[in-house]
Design a protein around this nucleic acid. Sequence first.
DNA 1: TAGGCAAGCAAGTGGTTACTTGCATGCCGC
DNA 2: GCGGCATGCAAGTAACCACTTGCTTGCCTA
Lengths: 197, 197
Amino acid sequence: MDVRDQLIHAALQVYSQGGSRGATTRRIAELAAVNEVTLFRHFGSKDALISAALGWLAERALALRLPEQPSNPRAELTAFCRAHHRGIYENRALIRKTMAEFEEHPEGAAVAREITAGIERELQGYLSRLRRAGRAGGRWRIGTATAMLMGTLFADAVGRDCMPERYPASADQAVAEYVELFLRAVGATPASRAISR
Amino acid sequence: MDVRDQLIHAALQVYSQGGSRGATTRRIAELAAVNEVTLFRHFGSKDALISAALGWLAERALALRLPEQPSNPRAELTAFCRAHHRGIYENRALIRKTMAEFEEHPEGAAVAREITAGIERELQGYLSRLRRAGRAGGRWRIGTATAMLMGTLFADAVGRDCMPERYPASADQAVAEYVELFLRAVGATPASRAISR
DNA sequence: TAGGCAAGCAAGTGGTTACTTGCATGCCGC
DNA sequence: GCGGCATGCAAGTAACCACTTGCTTGCCTA
């Protein structure tokens, strides 16, 4: 790992702890085990470094996929949502910072939006396939349904360390229960499917 | 409004914009139209002022209620959730800051938790009354269901200015659709109720 | 082996921050 | 009318910040 990568990693970590105001060039350089001057020689300014670090994160975001042909919606959605939830949870501190700094640095929130856009697309496609196949139905709009599921996962992953008493202790268990509720909401449960036509 | 209240209001506003690191005593005093020294004479330190301001907010939180006897769940839940959503939305900047500073200042997040605890209690009570009356049912736990509904509202209210394309343009309309989906999820829709036993 | 380049190091600059001190001013109750 | 009390004002302090400069060191390549 060369100096540039070390700085980017250190910047991400320090930024996660204190946001862009709390992330001092001294601490970043220290954590990267690099001279502070080297930081400026590479990136020019603190803001440029943080921006590069967030960009690096956006590039490396892994694209979760949902099967083209839904076969077992409960299992498939649960696995997908668990992975997404884990992704948010692992970066919860950083995500909170980017959202808090939305007014001052909209690019940060743009990164978050970019990363989750693929998740949303995947979910919407899957849902519409379910509905087209007659395996889900009712009077709901796809965008609203995905907003509900993704919002639930987001709030859980971002809030469960602030308010642990409010969420099921096991994240995996919680996600499974959310998916169960969600499937009923969109009429994709065997029983509810029967009545939705 | 005396000097103390002016300072508290100004502190809340400046804190909403920049968090505790971005909130300088100079800007707070300026906005309160008060000398900066007066700020320190009243509160001793910046942190004490911010803490007092958040405490003031927690005290004045209005307690939303759901009817003791559910009669029209869709209408009642929609009204309740709209009010809650509006409350989050109006304070979204401040809420984002307190959550971002959770690691450094857990008291801030504690205030948010305290304020929403009443909402959760109300919702859980209402849901259990619905279920006891046989007007909702299925294999879900109350805590999970409320986490889902509140999480959806939270994510929408906090995220719709960062990612406007992801949410229905009208907040009231969005909440109505969330409630509709939620009622189906907990088996409180006429049709789905029939099959839940 | 010579030259260039990346990095370290020490020191400094100008700006901002929270907080303090000392003193002047005006208002309100007695 | 007078004493106390809340506030304003000017100035200062010590710390921290992003960022710069000038110089040295060591490694790789030609």
